[in-house]
Nucleic acid binder design. Structure first.
Lengths: 190, 190
DNA sequence: CCTACCGATCGGTAGG
DNA sequence: CCTACCGATCGGTAGG
């Protein structure tokens, strides 16, 4: 399906540069199509951006959540999430890393539909993390009295921080640093 | 000095949108100048971007490093850095948060002069963190055997993660979460 | 899905 | 620092 090809290519370009930088002309060129052929599927550039974001969040769920969703809720699944998340940060299938992280940092201080949609996607993911953190506390696997939202913030920050570490600094140990940092955030001693 | 006004305004716009999004026309409009009046100070857009990045890193050093540079090297200064860093993340003087974080995430997967310059700036800052972490270990204030580079990565990630937490999610507790997360990363128990 | 085209804006230059 | 201008590209439309 052509629409799928378009948003896939758009997400790839967005991860590599920025979502705003994915112009209709560049995208059409990349796809070997005309500009009107591309824009006809969406109507406006903002609608294309929203569809690209949908594609990226689907890919995130597919590569991070789907592989672990049948694990035992609580600490076992939380640790599995950390591992699939780190693997995804290293190989998201997009050239420039996780497209959702890119869009989060690009649109955080703006207003509008893209800002709202990426905020909602991150919020949904946080609820998953918070639920497993709370289940882990209830099971006695994490210290009682931890602030679940604070820990979720910590895990998110570490996962997002992998992109500049790997790609800006070229750190070879990013994976190990992130794995260790996530366990420290959770209060687990190695 | 006009050049100073231009890069200050450019850094403000870049923090709010993106560095690439600071077009010469928009910048000239914002300043009440002509496009050629703006571009004449720099020659090319890339030179303007590099000058804007210089301004932003100067501001970071001034607001995060300068206030704590006379503190005792090691854990005391490290904790002071965490506090000034968090305060800066909440009020950098730029409308859209820390300009260096914005540029890091925007240019991490690109090549070129802006990528290289922001990478070097982050690297310099890391060396400061690593030195104080190592001094804290030597003084017996942090656990022996900690990986200083890994801890620096953790602190950086938390500080950078404040922007989407505050501005994308509107989290009112970002400051407290970050402060707690930084201490946890350092292995300090509250 | 295409060609052809719209007005606006892009980065930048010439000349003063 | 300005006006005036360059060719290229922007998002998008008309018509088929």
């Amino acid at each position: 399906m052509t629409r799928e090809r378009i948003v896939h290519t758009a997400a790839n370009l967005a991860s590599d540069r920025s979502l705003d930088g994915v112009t209709i002309g560049v995208l059409a060129d990349e796809l070997g199509m005309s500009k009107s052929g591309v824009v006809g599927h969406f109507g406006t550039k903002e609608a294309l951006q929203l569809a690209t974001l949908d594609f990226a969040t689907d890919r995130f769920r597919e590569l991070v959540w789907e592989p672990v969703k049948d694990q035992t809720p609580g600490l076992p699944r939380l640790l599995a999430i950390c591992d699939s998340w780190i693997a995804y940060a290293e190989n998201s299938g997009f050239d420039g890393g996780c497209c959702v992280v890119q869009i989060s940092y690009e649109f955080d201080s703006r207003t509008g539909a893209v800002h709202d949609k990426v905020a909602a996607a991150v919020r949904r993911w946080r609820r998953v993390l918070v639920a497993d953190i709370e289940a882990a506390v209830a099971a006695g696997d994490l210290a009682p009295g931890v602030n679940a939202a604070q820990l979720a913030f910590g895990l998110e920050s570490i996962a997002s921080g992998m992109a500049p570490s790997r790609m800006l600094q070229g750190d070879a140990d990013t994976r190990d640093w992130a794995r260790q940092a996530m366990r420290t955030i959770l209060g687990l001693h190695p």
